[in-house]
Amino acid sequence: MSEVITLANVLDDAAIFSLEHQVRLEEVVGEHNWHVDLEEQRFEFAGSRALVCSRVHLLGSAAPGPGSWLWAWANPSGYAEPLIAHSVRVREFGRQHGIEQLAAAEVPFGALPGGPAEPRFEPARVAGALLDAAKAVTGCWTHYHADVGSGTRAAFLIEHPEFRLPPPEFPRVMRVLQQAIAELGLRDHRRAVHGYARLRGLGAAFTPDHAKLTITGPDFTIGVEFDQYNRVGEITARSGAETL
Results as ranks from 00 to 15, higher is better:
residue 190 R to S: 08
residue 77 S to Q: 13
residue 207 T to N: 09
residue 37 D to W: 13
residue 194 H to W: 13
residue 97 H to G: 07
residue 163 F to Q: 10
residue 19 L to F: 11
residue 126 V to Q: 00
residue 7 L to E: 02
residue 185 G to I: 03
residue 191 R to N: 06
residue 54 S to Y: 03
residue 36 V to K: 07
residue 226 F to E: 05
residue 182 A to M: 08
residue 169 E to A: 15
residue 44 E to T: 13
residue 22 Q to A: 09
residue 152 T to S: 11
residue 62 A to P: 08
residue 144 Y to I: 00
residue 212 K to H: 13
residue 235 I to L: 15
residue 228 Q to A: 03
residue 136 A to Q: 14
residue 80 A to V: 07
residue 169 E to K: 13
residue 31 E to Q: 15
residue 135 K to D: 00
residue 212 K to Y: 09
residue 124 A to G: 04
residue 177 L to V: 06
residue 1 M to V: 09
residue 124 A to H: 02
residue 94 G to S: 03
residue 132 D to E: 09
residue 202 L to F: 06
residue 144 Y to F: 13
residue 44 E to R: 15
residue 30 G to S: 14
residue 24 R to F: 06
residue 171 P to W: 11
residue 99 I to L: 00
residue 214 T to V: 15
residue 164 R to W: 03
residue 212 K to W: 06
residue 45 F to A: 03
residue 60 G to H: 01
residue 30 G to M: 11
residue 118 E to H: 10
residue 1 M to L: 08
residue 127 A to C: 13
residue 80 A to H: 10
residue 167 P to M: 03
residue 153 R to F: 11
residue 173 V to L: 10
residue 3 E to H: 15
residue 208 P to R: 14
residue 173 V to D: 05
residue 117 A to H: 12
residue 218 P to D: 12
residue 229 Y to L: 14
residue 142 T to M: 02
residue 121 F to A: 06
residue 90 V to D: 00
residue 181 I to V: 13
residue 101 Q to C: 05
residue 174 M to T: 12
residue 231 R to G: 00
residue 193 V to D: 04
residue 98 G to C: 00
residue 199 L to Y: 07
residue 215 I to W: 04
residue 216 T to P: 04
residue 29 V to A: 07
residue 125 R to S: 06
residue 159 E to I: 07
residue 73 W to K: 08
residue 42 R to V: 08
residue 218 P to M: 00
residue 46 A to F: 08
residue 68 S to D: 11
residue 187 R to K: 13
residue 2 S to D: 15
residue 86 H to Y: 09
residue 63 A to G: 04
residue 66 P to F: 07
residue 103 A to D: 01
residue 22 Q to C: 01
residue 152 T to P: 00
residue 107 V to H: 02
residue 216 T to H: 06
residue 240 G to Q: 02
residue 78 G to A: 11
residue 204 A to Q: 01
residue 243 T to Y: 04
residue 98 G to V: 01
residue 230 N to M: 12
residue 50 A to P: 05
residue 223 G to F: 00
residue 115 G to W: 09
residue 75 N to W: 11
residue 153 R to L: 08
residue 10 V to K: 03
residue 162 E to T: 11
residue 194 H to A: 15
residue 40 E to A: 15
residue 100 E to C: 11
residue 85 A to H: 07
residue 130 L to V: 05
residue 17 F to Y: 13
residue 148 V to I: 14
residue 68 S to W: 06
residue 36 V to N: 07
residue 4 V to S: 14
residue 145 H to C: 10
residue 214 T to M: 08
residue 81 E to W: 02
residue 7 L to Q: 02
residue 91 R to T: 07
residue 73 W to I: 06
residue 10 V to H: 01
residue 197 A to N: 02
residue 19 L to E: 08
residue 218 P to L: 02
residue 8 A to C: 05
residue 79 Y to E: 01
residue 73 W to S: 07
residue 140 C to G: 06
residue 20 E to W: 09
